[in-house]
Amino acid sequence: MANLLELRNLSKSHGAFNLRDVDLAVPAGTITGLIGANGAGKSTLLKLVLGLLPLDGGEIRLFGEDARLGGARLRQRIGFVQESPTLFPLLRVDELGEVVAPFYPRWDRATYRRICDAFELPRKTAFARLSQGSRMKAALALALSHEAELLLLDEPTSGLDPLMRRDLLDLLLEVIQDEGRAVLFSTHITSDLERVADHVAILKAGRLVLAGAKDDLLESWALVRGGEELLEGPLKDRCRGGERTELGLTLLCEGAGSLASLLPDGALQERPSLEDLVYFHDRGKESLCAR
């Protein structure tokens, strides 16, 4: 499976924020979810891919080509939706389609109309008069109407109601039925990723702390619940994060398949959710061990 997007040692300094040494690949025929707390670098990463921010170091390869050399030509093959999209406020939804169409040789008017209708977008309404959710839908309709091979979506489900969110996720699944296409989307909502993502990448303070196939990650990590003795044995070395509550300790440990022999009596091992992976990686284990 070819990679439509490859990031190698990507770095970017942006005020106090630093994105460092990010390596990530988005294979064709997959949906990759980018997840992390606010300010983790998700939007910065997507903007770097599209050339909206100048790169400090590293390499971006789009469709096998150096993105810096391909520039505008490669962007014809990308559909992008920015967080809180701002489009021309005076233009109506149907006019937005008309003015964006000439930029893309593979623009499909029928697809644009179909998506607008599916999203229940009022086509005769000016963008400025749309609600926040409808603005996101309009931007999505534009991004999905030119047979983009790579979709870069920055928080596309924010502002959408649960029904519409599910429709959008179904639409993304429909997109990757064509195995030459791929989706990279950032989100805060882990349930969206649980539903559609094949691959997951977790960003924390500008660093990629975990990336891989979603099912592999969920298989290879485990939540271990127990008392303070969890931190005294060999389990401590496998721990990447955890929290202490009134009920005891919860640790996120790697190597789920070989943990059983390391567990003290009374400890329980569970399969984590994606939210657990994000949450405990964000927490780290330093605070637990500092006690």
Binding site: G71, R75, Q82, T86, Y104
Partner: peptide, 17 residues
Amino acid sequence: TFDVEGFMASLPVTRAQ
């Protein structure tokens, strides 16, 4: 004034254009 520069720059055109 319409704050669409980010959107324009994401289109398949060069900055020089």
